[in-house]
Design a protein around this nucleic acid. Structure first.
Length: 364
DNA sequence: AAGTCGGGGCC
DNA sequence: GGCCCAGACTT
């Protein structure tokens, strides 16, 4: 085979690109670090992968720093107070991840001797670890030759092979193609390289094809608009739900809070009292669902978009003397609201009623 | 296979 | 305003 007709294998092209353009991330062992003998910590790889599920790198960084600082090992996390974990996760979203994170840490610490399973199948038995995360940890932390397929890789593969089958039906086909590409030599770096490629070059819009190490192999480039890939099933529209939220402030400035059910939407998180969130758009959202009688003053509305519906909350506020029978809940001093397990929609509601309720947003 | 489950950044 | 993001889990 002559050199002129021989094309380098895609995996080699991607790894060569990765060696030059990889991003330095807090949980990553970069090729230069690896050359100095640094090995990945499965705990940190696992923690980062769970945080990164459907979540951007920028959103994760400060949370990763907080968690690894408070709980440096999986055993530390396993022995932590669950409520502290929920408080630390507040704002990151998909709160079932936090509940499963704690369960997984307990399983590793108390049933696996504090050591993560080092195979894809073993990892997949743990709470919160599915197909993607098991493959990613196996590849990145244990150098297993597993096929890592996330949203980034789906985009790269769909364009590289001009896959016409829409997602999610195309996933098995894509996984097979990724498995065929994955090298035995550096599977962990290959996985991270493919995801970096999707995050920085093969982007959803305006991909930088001129800079792509695979542009000579791409079946879409030069024939169609890459933005048309991956094909996706049509999505249904988001319904609107309405509700009321009640922000009560006592004579000391404390706010009345309560705890949500442990499962379902915002499960296990803290809330201000409110009505059910109904799909009806007729009828006013009144104070019928108020937690106790008070002079409730309407103080505007907040809108919050969840994954499958849009919520419009009418916010009511009142200043009352602390009453003995306020129902399930507690009065939280205003200056300590920041540390509570309040999801973003609840912070919005409180801020609507009491604009100076929070110190300032947590920044990276 | 479809529905549930957050939040923010980007265009 | 819509789209996307290192998806998992339930039904």
């Amino acid at each position: 085979m002559t050199q002129a007709h021989r094309t380098a294998a895609p995996a080699d092209l991607i790894l060569a690109w990765y060696d030059r353009h990889h991003r330095d991330l807090p949980w990553r062992v970069s090729p230069p670090m690896a050359a100095r003998g640094v090995t990945p910590d499965p705990y940190r790889i696992w923690l980062s992968e769970v945080m990164l599920q459907q979540t951007t790198v920028g959103a994760v960084k400060s949370y990763f720093a907080l968690f690894t600082s408070r709980w440096p090992t999986v055993s530390d996390l396993a022995n932590a107070d669950t409520e502290d974990v929920m408080k630390s996760w507040a704002g990151l979203g998909y709160y079932a991840r936090a509940r499963n994170l704690k369960k997984c840490a307990e399983a590793v610490a108390f049933q696996h001797g504090g050591v993560f399973p080092d195979t894809e199948d073993g990892l997949k038995t743990l709470p919160g670890i599915g197909d993607y995360t098991a493959a990613a940890i196996a590849a990145i932390a244990f150098n297993r030759k597993s096929a890592v397929l996330d949203g980034n890789v789906e985009r790269v593969i769909s364009r590289l092979h001009a896959i016409e089958t829409p997602l999610p039906a195309a996933k098995p086909e894509m996984r097979t193609l990724v498995a065929a590409m994955t090298p035995a030599d550096r599977p962990g770096d290959f996985a991270q390289a493919m995801m970096d490629l999707g995050a920085t070059i093969c982007t959803p819009r305006r991909p930088a094809c001129a800079l792509c190490p695979l542009n000579a192999d791409c079946r879409v480039l030069g024939r169609e608009d890459p933005e048309l890939y991956p094909r996706k099933a049509a999505k249904k529209e988001k319904p609107v739900r309405l509700g009321a939220a009640f922000v009560a402030e006592d004579e000391t400035g404390a706010v009345f809070l309560r705890k949500r059910e442990t499962s379902g939407l915002l499960g296990g998180m803290t809330e201000v009292p409110g009505s059910a969130w109904t799909a009806r758009i007729d009828g006013e959202t009144g104070t019928a669902a108020a937690p106790f009688p008070a002079e409730w003053q309407a103080s505007g509305t907040v809108t919050h978009v969840f994954t499958h519906f849009e919520l419009r909350l009418t916010v009511y506020r009142s200043k009352i003397s602390r009453i003995a029978d306020a129902g399930e809940g507690w009065w939280q001093p205003k200056e300590t609201l920041d540390g509570e397990a309040l999801p973003t929609v609840m912070k919005k509601a409180i801020k609507q009623a009491i604009p100076d309720a929070f110190q300032k947003a947590r920044k990276a």
